[in-house]
């Protein structure tokens, strides 16, 4: 069901939940919310749990880190409660974001932003083109790196130097990207793209029952976790 939700509706609901969460400083609200999100994911969404766990790992470490530093280095006001609250909040936010990322197709998200939230087609299609370019740019990146290796440019060991050495790669890559972008812009315009707002879409991203149900579910969870914060 979560997978079938309209991306814009999902996006709005998730943003609202995050903002609401930000006002609760007790440990229970984010904890209940986090568990609820995992439960929703378990029951109503198809997600690869393996990838999910891998992506969650850094956040989990972050949460533990928060907990530890707040407890040890925090001032006298900070108690076990605030430490737990902070780390659960990290978990709640990250699980919610991942729920969105794992159940939404990027292209559909952009199309939906354009259709439901009236994002300008100029911006929306630019993002779509950029998305198509990513694999091409990746190829080019490796080609340039190979060519420069041949000339004896070593890949430095220290990460800082590695980042500064990137500029050698970026100049030819940007030069190529600018040319490509111009060509694509021309091709789009030659096919009559003007960026005007009044388009009739072939592939309509609709709002349906799944959205009502999904939104309700998220709202119930949000209210439930708030209530948990007050009661416990």
């Amino acid at each position: 069901m979560i997978n079938r939700m309209n991306p814009s509706v999902k996006f709005v609901m998730i943003t609202v939940s995050m903002i609401a969460m930000a006002f609760f400083f007790n440990p229970w609200t984010p904890l209940v919310f986090f568990m609820g999100v995992v439960l929703i994911q378990l029951l109503f969404a198809t997600v690869s749990w393996k990838t999910w766990s891998l992506m969650m790992l850094p956040f989990l470490l972050g949460a533990v880190g928060y907990f530890w530093t707040t407890l040890v280095f925090g001032n006298e006001d900070s108690t076990l409660g605030t430490a737990l609250s902070l780390s659960f909040r990290v978990l709640a936010f990250s699980s919610l974001s991942l729920l969105f990322v794992f159940t939404t197709k990027p292209v559909e998200f952009i199309l939906s932003l354009m259709q439901q939230l009236k994002l300008s087609p100029k911006i929306a299609y630019s993002i779509l083109v950029g998305y198509q370019f990513l694999p091409v740019l990746k190829d080019e990146f490796f080609q340039i790196r190979q060519a420069q290796q041949l000339r004896g440019v070593e890949v430095p060991k220290s990460p800082v130097k590695r980042v500064t050495a990137m500029r050698h790669l970026l100049i030819p890559m940007l030069a190529g990207a600018v040319r490509k972008a111009e060509r694509t812009a021309f091709a789009m315009e030659a096919r009559g793209f003007t960026g005007e707002g009044d388009r009739d879409f072939y592939r309509k991203i609709t709002i349906g029952r799944a959205d009502a149900a999904g939104s309700l579910l998220i709202l119930v969870l949000l209210c439930g976790s708030m209530a948990a914060g007050w009661l416990l």
């Binding site: 490509k180 060509r183 694509t184 021309f186 091709a187 789009m188 030659a190 096919r191």
Partner: peptide
């Protein structure tokens, strides 16, 4: 209508 040179940069 126009068809361009580079097959890699005329689709979006």
């Amino acid at each position: 209508a126009t068809v361009f040179q580079d097959p890699d940069s005329q689709f979006c």
